[in-house]
């Protein structure tokens, strides 16, 4: 005699509109963009990103000021060179903020909570990556816009050339954001311990740039120009510079770049591989964390 029944104790069903997966991914993206800048967090989380952003745009303002005061257009920095001149600041920014996105949830073991909602690891990871790229794009593109607008105010000659260079430099900025963000996030997700992530990311950027510069200097000194050019493939900022020079028609900023259109294509392929590899690393790490 089984009399067990399921009692209807009067909970109401939700039958309002469902916002869907797109909404979930968008919310995660917005949340992560805010997290990079420390918005919605205490003031001490905001200090570093905004300080670094200020350090990043300050030279652009000073440069525009110099152009306006001296009335010499050639003082205006090249748009495509800006991110490379200030690569240390970009590196510190990505080193200090990539662990915020890549390892905080891992450290506090809350990733399974995200995956208890209808979101798959890949969109989750892509939302994080897109947030980092957005933040880096802000870092690299805003000073370039400042330079361009400053140039317009100062009425520098050849406005059409400037417009073309400006737009191509923005493409370069997007590529910088993608490559730097990918490398930073991939290294940060592999070193979740606090402090170590920051150090590991900065070590990758700084040492690759320092060693490549050293090799290029020595190679040029010994007139081995092909080695000097090819060394550029091994540091992220140089890699994007190769694309800028060979595919986007920019002037060279790094010590040396390899010759020919084909080297630009190769550099672009390497950039794509870097981004793809980084997303794969992030995906695998977060999927594993979501299972536990």
């Amino acid at each position: 005699m089984s009399t067990s029944t399921i009692h209807d104790i009067g909970y109401r069903r939700y039958d309002g509109p469902r916002l869907g997966r797109g909404y979930l991914v968008r919310s995660l993206y917005v949340h992560n963009v805010r997290a990079v800048w420390g918005l919605g967090r205490p003031a001490r989380a905001k200090v570093m990103p905004f300080l670094l952003a200020a350090v990043m745009v300050a030279p652009a303002f000073m440069d525009v000021g110099a152009v306006l005061l001296t009335d010499r257009a050639e003082v205006l920095m090249r748009y495509s060179a800006y991110a490379i001149y200030l690569q240390v600041v970009v590196s510190i920014f990505v080193a200090s903020q990539a662990p915020v996105l890549a390892s905080r949830e891992l450290r506090f073991h809350v990733v399974p909570l995200y995956f208890s909602r209808p979101i798959a690891p890949l969109p989750f990871v892509l939302a994080k990556f897109a947030a980092m790229v957005t933040a880096l794009l802000t870092m690299t593109a805003v000073p370039v816009v400042v330079l361009y607008v400053g140039g317009l105010i100062a009425k520098v000659p050849h406005p059409l050339t400037h417009l073309r260079e400006f737009l191509l430099a923005l493409v370069g900025c997007a590529l910088f954001a993608l490559v730097i963000g990918a490398l930073g996030m991939a290294v940060a997700v592999l070193t979740p311990r606090r402090g170590f992530g920051v150090a590991a990311v900065i070590a990758v950027f700084l040492l690759s740039s320092a060693v490549v510069l050293l090799v290029q200097n020595i190679a040029e000194f010994r007139t081995n120009f092909s080695l000097a050019g090819n060394a550029g493939y091994f540091a992220p900022f140089n890699l994007v510079d190769i694309v800028q020079v060979r595919l986007l028609g920019a002037e060279r900023t790094a010590e040396a770049v390899p010759d020919g259109f084909i080297s630009g294509v190769l550099a672009l392929l390497l950039c794509a591989a870097l981004v793809g590899g980084a997303v794969a690393v992030l995906y695998r790490r977060f999927r594993k964390a979501g299972l536990s």
Binding site: I92, G195, V198
Partner: peptide
């Protein structure tokens, strides 16, 4: 620096890379 601040690594980087080097 690490005892004083949670941002010790970043502050240290700012000092070592921007102040000293640049």
């Amino acid at each position: 620096l690490a005892v004083f601040s949670r941002n010790a690594v970043t502050i240290g980087l700012l000092y070592a890379l921007i102040w000293e080097s640049l």
